[in-house]
Simulated assay, not measured.
Amino acid sequence: MRISVDLNRCQGYGQCCFADPSVFKLRGEEVLEFDPAPGDEHRLKVIRAAKACPVQAIYIGESYEEQEERSHRHE
């Protein structure tokens, strides 16, 4: 899983930090830090974090490995 955050859109509400504090952290009051490639064990919490974001600034995609696996299944 890969995640990205539109930091121009992010307002620092911190709802993602409550959903998965091991992936999302606020530094100070407004600077969001996050792990762009958390392990699969974080998938449900990251999905909850993305849904909880009031400005919908969190995007979830596939990791390179997931893309490769999917492409091999279709061959």
Score class of each variant (00 low, 15 high):
residue 1 M to G: 06
residue 2 R to N: 15
residue 3 I to V: 15
residue 4 S to G: 12
residue 4 S to V: 09
residue 5 V to A: 07
residue 6 D to G: 10
residue 6 D to A: 07
residue 7 L to C: 04
residue 7 L to M: 15
residue 8 N to D: 13
residue 9 R to H: 10
residue 9 R to M: 03
residue 9 R to L: 03
residue 9 R to V: 07
residue 10 C to R: 00
residue 11 Q to T: 13
residue 12 G to D: 00
residue 13 Y to K: 08
residue 14 G to V: 12
residue 14 G to Q: 01
residue 14 G to Y: 03
residue 14 G to P: 02
residue 17 C to E: 15
residue 18 F to H: 07
residue 19 A to M: 01
residue 19 A to C: 06
residue 20 D to K: 04
residue 20 D to E: 15
residue 20 D to V: 13
residue 20 D to C: 09
residue 21 P to E: 06
residue 21 P to G: 15
residue 21 P to H: 05
residue 22 S to E: 11
residue 24 F to C: 06
residue 25 K to S: 07
residue 25 K to G: 05
residue 25 K to H: 12
residue 26 L to F: 08
residue 26 L to W: 07
residue 26 L to H: 05
residue 27 R to S: 09
residue 27 R to W: 02
residue 29 E to G: 12
residue 29 E to K: 08
residue 30 E to A: 11
residue 30 E to G: 08
residue 31 V to Y: 10
residue 32 L to Y: 02
residue 32 L to R: 03
residue 32 L to G: 01
residue 34 F to G: 00
residue 34 F to M: 00
residue 34 F to K: 03
residue 35 D to M: 11
residue 35 D to T: 08
residue 35 D to Q: 09
residue 35 D to K: 06
residue 35 D to F: 02
residue 36 P to K: 01
residue 36 P to I: 03
residue 37 A to I: 13
residue 37 A to F: 04
residue 40 D to H: 13
residue 40 D to S: 15
residue 40 D to C: 11
residue 41 E to Q: 14
residue 41 E to S: 09
residue 42 H to C: 02
residue 42 H to W: 04
residue 42 H to V: 05
residue 42 H to K: 12
residue 43 R to G: 03
residue 43 R to Q: 07
residue 43 R to T: 05
residue 44 L to N: 12
residue 44 L to D: 14
residue 44 L to Q: 10
residue 44 L to W: 01
residue 46 V to G: 03
residue 46 V to I: 04
residue 47 I to C: 05
residue 47 I to E: 08
residue 47 I to L: 13
residue 48 R to I: 09
residue 48 R to P: 07
residue 48 R to H: 03
residue 49 A to H: 01
residue 50 A to R: 08
residue 50 A to M: 03
residue 50 A to D: 05
residue 51 K to Q: 12
residue 51 K to H: 09
residue 51 K to C: 11
residue 52 A to T: 01
residue 52 A to E: 04
residue 54 P to M: 09
residue 56 Q to M: 14
residue 56 Q to D: 12
residue 56 Q to V: 10
residue 57 A to D: 01
residue 57 A to W: 11
residue 57 A to C: 07
residue 57 A to V: 00
residue 58 I to D: 04
residue 59 Y to V: 11
residue 59 Y to G: 12
residue 60 I to M: 02
residue 63 S to K: 09
residue 63 S to G: 07
residue 64 Y to P: 09
residue 65 E to H: 05
residue 67 Q to G: 09
residue 67 Q to P: 01
residue 67 Q to D: 13
residue 68 E to L: 14
residue 69 E to A: 05
residue 70 R to H: 08
residue 70 R to W: 02
residue 70 R to P: 00
residue 70 R to G: 00
residue 71 S to R: 14
residue 73 R to W: 05
residue 75 E to Q: 08
residue 75 E to K: 13
